[in-house]
């Protein structure tokens, strides 16, 4: 089993090298004083990457432990949460999205429900004041407020 992950990785990297080579070969420069042009350097990189990934395939290192089960679910949960945070950041505004994200994130890190809610509310208000008044950063109030006005 050891090294299997690195073998998969080496194949992916080889694919990336091929992809770069194909993309770079399609770059067209009508005319240039530059004897090298934009193609050569990516081609060189793709060649080195291909060589290194072949070496990796034949001499893979020890693989680490990959997340599975409940941990994998939680990792995906954090990612979805951060994605939603970004999605609603300007729509719902900083205060609301931050409070909810912080609360859920704290809960995912085993804070327990009460501490999660309290930290969400305090951190969003506290950080808003800090960013706005101490650092002069403009943070979004949310599209829903502007549509009300």
């Amino acid at each position: 089993m050891s090294g299997a992950a690195d073998r998969v990785l080496s194949i992916l990297l080889l694919g990336l090298a091929a992809f770069i080579a194909v993309q770079a070969s399609q770059l067209d420069v009508p005319f240039s004083y530059d004897p090298v042009g934009p193609k050569a350097f990516p081609m060189l990189l793709s060649g080195i990457l291909a060589l290194l990934s072949v070496i990796l395939f034949f001499r893979p290192g020890q693989g680490g432990k990959w997340p599975r089960g409940a941990l994998l679910l939680r990792l995906l949960g954090v990612l979805v949460l951060l994605g939603l945070y970004a999605w609603f950041f300007t729509l719902a505004g900083y205060l609301i999205t931050t409070a909810i994200t912080v609360a859920v994130l704290a809960w995912l890190f085993n804070s327990g429900p009460a501490k999660a809610v309290i930290s969400g509310v305090l951190l969003s208000i506290g950080s808003y004041l800090l960013f706005t008044f101490a650092l002069g950063i403009t943070l979004p109030w949310g599209a829903w407020l502007t549509s009300l006005a």
């Binding site: 945070y85 970004a86 931050t98 994200t101 994130l105 804070s111 930290s119």
Partner: peptide, 14 residues
């Protein structure tokens, strides 16, 4: 961690 991680996330986003 449950205080630290949300702080990192907020700092990263802002």
């Amino acid at each position: 961690k449950w205080i630290l991680v949300p702080c990192i996330a907020v700092l990263a986003f802002v």
